[in-house]
């Protein structure tokens, strides 16, 4: 498969790209120039980088053209302020999906956050069928608005969209994390979920919660376990 992975400057995008490049051709994109880690030069399949502002011009069409799927990591740059975060995850998500629809790309994976569900009373077991409860934190709100935007493309059957709401991503070389509000999710588990979504039949609109149930039992992961964490 030919995959486009956005937000190449983010650790998650780089980790996913490294894992997916074992089986797929990967094109990274970012709104700013990025020096990809050297390890990505050693992958079995080609890895390339394309600088793209995800604007509303032909550049975004060219970016997505001939891709089999898009993994929209949708992470802000460290330099982004609150307004940039809202803008990027709404406008650029819209531009990306519009270009995907125009270029006949049938599948987009949107990486979101379980932070959308963190406001529920821990006494509940919250699944994907519960209504998101975003707060006004710009990161959480912008992820919610990205889902809102993508959902309309799925509703109109322009692009099939799968949303992976991740807990707190833990990377292999990270120190033991302090338990937080969100369940931890090993980066390798997130990458496996992405890989499994890519090889499964496309769903018009699907959401999966990905995290560690044992530490945070109020988030149920049963749907993901049945479909994308097998």
């Amino acid at each position: 498969m030919k995959l486009l992975i956005t937000s190449a400057a983010s650790p998650l995008a780089q980790f996913l790209g490294q894992q997916l490049a074992a089986n797929h051709t990967v094109r990274f994109s970012e709104r700013a120039p990025v020096d990809l880690p050297p390890v990505l030069a050693e992958t079995p399949f080609a890895v390339e980088f394309a600088h793209s502002p995800l604007g509303h011009d032909m550049g975004t069409n060219l970016l997505v053209r001939n891709m089999d799927a898009i993994i929209h990591v949708a992470e802000p740059l460290v330099t982004d302020n609150e307004y940039n975060k809202i803008d990027i995850l709404t406008r650029c998500t819209y531009n990306l999906l519009t270009a995907a629809a125009e270029e006949g790309i049938s599948r987009l994976l949107l990486i979101s956050t379980l932070g959308l569900m963190a406001d529920y009373d821990p006494a509940y077991r919250v699944s994907e069928r519960w209504r998101p409860r975003p707060n006004t934190d710009p990161y959480v709100l912008s992820k919610h608005l990205a889902e809102f935007t993508a959902r309309e493309f799925a509703r109109e059957q322009k692009v099939n969209v799968t949303v992976l709401r991740l807990g707190q991503v833990v990377y292999p070389d990270a120190d033991a994390a302090t338990p937080g509000a969100l369940p931890p999710v090993a980066a390798a588990m997130a990458a496996q979920a992405v890989e499994n979504v890519l090889v499964a039949p496309a769903e018009r609109w699907a959401i999966y919660h990905i995290g560690n149930e044992s530490t945070h039992p109020h988030f149920t992961m049963s749907k993901a376990k049945a479909k994308v964490l097998v």
Partner: peptide
């Protein structure tokens, strides 16, 4: 206008 519509209506 794509940019301005997001600037005005959303932001």
């Amino acid at each position: 206008h794509r940019q301005l519509a997001f600037d005005v209506n959303t932001l």
